[in-house]
Design a protein around this nucleic acid. Structure first.
Length: 464
DNA sequence: TGAAATGTTGGGGCG
DNA sequence: ACGCCCCAACATTTC
């Protein structure tokens, strides 16, 4: 007689390798299921990625698709298939954890065993504590403490997966209509990315071969391919952090430490969100609740479309629109510009990032925007204001990145590519640029904007 | 994981 | 030869 099957509920862990929930079930018949949850908030670019990633996974395992409330879907599926247990790898967002608790309760009620596993983070957020037993609020001591913890080695993919003798039926992927009906920017995503576990492994191997050794310095250069570009693969769990840690550690190249440190920021963000579940909406520093933001739809639209008149900002925003991704250095620059030069509330920028980033990650996004805005606990001080011209000249010195995404400026010489309004009339004419027509003049003067931001900060601090 | 304002120093032009 | 001034260049402070 066939052993009763185990349901493996896959979420943002769309992989076969290093998947503890799957590995623990694979000895007998397995029913892997992905559930499209009612009311789940997922941005347009992420929906596109999810569609591709699920399609890829279904070519490699008999993945069942169902939609609805997980507690109901899973109890029904267990009853239908006679499954004895449901496995999953834990998730850590407030909504995700609540949904998991509800599912666990319903399954227990129905007499179905539940086993949950760690696998999407290196360290469970509640296990990292200071000597005093408190959660950390500053990155460096957090990361130092993490290094004292053991990390399990990644698990191999199961040798084989066996389904039940009578496989249940589910939805078709197409019926979910995941990607928005907007071909204009879907094409850009398709040209830039190949979702899926195999593609993630190739990307990791290429990164280690080509870029890891110089990562410490090259990672700051948007004009060079120095970063891993693994973020969307990691976000969807096509590769797990333990796999990254092992692969990079084994390479023992120069960039290993700084790369793992970046993984550390991911861990820290989820640590913070675990202990401050409203961090995506509420500033961690309470005095920022009364900050005099100036929401302005026209300026926000200029930022979103990449028409601020600051080339490095516009290049980044257009790259995001087109590819669903932006270099981390450029994310800091455009975020600083929105929050400090335009005095716009950081939540508006955060919402746009979640809508358009293929690597949209609730915790990292909230922690990073709060870091830039200065309202996080371990944040850049508010008076630390990026100058978009100097940042551009420092990190894109030949203007290669700007020329790629703001082609109307391509004819300007390197000397003025980051400050076209200072180019000589002859140089503008030669490059076929008319400021105000082919390219906008700066929407704000950075010097004046900086002074205004400092004033607003003092005002908010005084009022607190 | 800043940048601007302010302070200090030392070489060289010049009367 | 000497003192004075100018101003890069660098360092420190401030936001």
């Amino acid at each position: 007689m066939d052993a009763s099957p185990i349901i493996v509920w896959l979420r943002r862990d769309l992989r076969l390798a290093d998947n503890p929930a799957l590995a623990a079930a694979a000895a007998g018949p397995v029913i892997p299921v992905f559930i499209l949850e009612d009311g789940e908030e997922i941005g347009g670019a992420a929906r596109w990625w999810l569609r591709q990633s699920l399609a890829d996974l279904r070519r490699r395992m008999p993945l069942l698709l169902r939609r609805g409330e997980p507690a109901r879907v899973l109890t029904e599926l267990a009853a239908e298939t006679g499954a004895s247990a449901v496995h999953w790898n834990r998730r850590y967002s407030p909504a995700g954890a609540a949904s998991d608790r509800a599912a666990a309760a319903a399954l227990a009620e129905a007499g179905v065993a539940v086993r949950d596993f760690p696998g999407n983070l290196l360290f469970e957020p509640w296990t990292v504590r200071s000597r005093a037993g408190e959660p950390f609020r500053v990155f460096t001591p957090f990361w130092n403490r993490c290094r004292e913890h053991e990390v399990a080695a990644p698990l191999p993919a199961p040798d084989s997966l066996r389904g039940p003798s009578a496989p249940p039926r589910g939805d078709t992927l197409d019926s979910w209509r995941l990607p928005p009906d907007d071909p204009e920017w879907m094409d850009g995503l398709a040209a830039a990315w190949r979702p899926g576990e195999d593609a993630a492994a190739v990307r990791l191997a290429d990164f280690i071969d080509e870029s890891l050794d110089q990562y410490a310095t090259a990672r700051d250069r948007p004009d060079q391919p120095g970063t891993s570009r693994l973020s969307p693969h990691l976000s969807f769990g096509e590769i797990g952090p333990r796999q990254l840690r092992q692969a990079v550690g084994a390479a023992s190249l120069g960039g290993g430490e700084p790369f793992l440190r970046q993984l550390g920021w991911r861990e820290f963000a989820w640590h913070l969100l675990h202990h401050a579940p409203d961090m995506d909406r509420v500033p961690l520093r309470p005095e920022f609740a009364r900050f005099p933001w100036r929401s302005d739809d026209d300026l926000f639209e200029a930022w979103r479309q990449g028409r601020t008149g600051y080339p490095i900002v516009d290049a980044g925003m257009r790259c995001l629109r087109r590819t669903g991704w932006m270099h981390n250095r450029v994310r800091m620059i455009v975020a600083s510009f929105l929050v400090k030069d335009l005095l716009m509330p950081w939540e508006r920028g955060a919402a746009w990032f979640l809508e358009r980033l293929v690597d949209a990650d609730l915790a990292i996004n909230a922690a990073s925007w709060q870091w830039v805005a200065g309202c996080g606990t371990d944040a850049a001080p508010y008076f630390r204001i990026f100058n978009p011209v100097l940042q551009g000249e420092k990190f894109d010195p030949r203007g290669r990145f700007v020329r790629q995404w703001v082609p109307e400026l391509a004819g300007l010489p390197d000397l003025t590519i980051h400050r076209p309004w200072q180019a000589a009339p002859a140089a503008l004419a030669k490059a076929d640029i008319t400021l105000g027509q082919s390219y906008p003049p700066p929407v704000v003067d950075h010097g004046a904007a900086r002074r205004r931001a400092l004033l607003a900060y003092q005002q908010a601090r005084g009022a607190a």
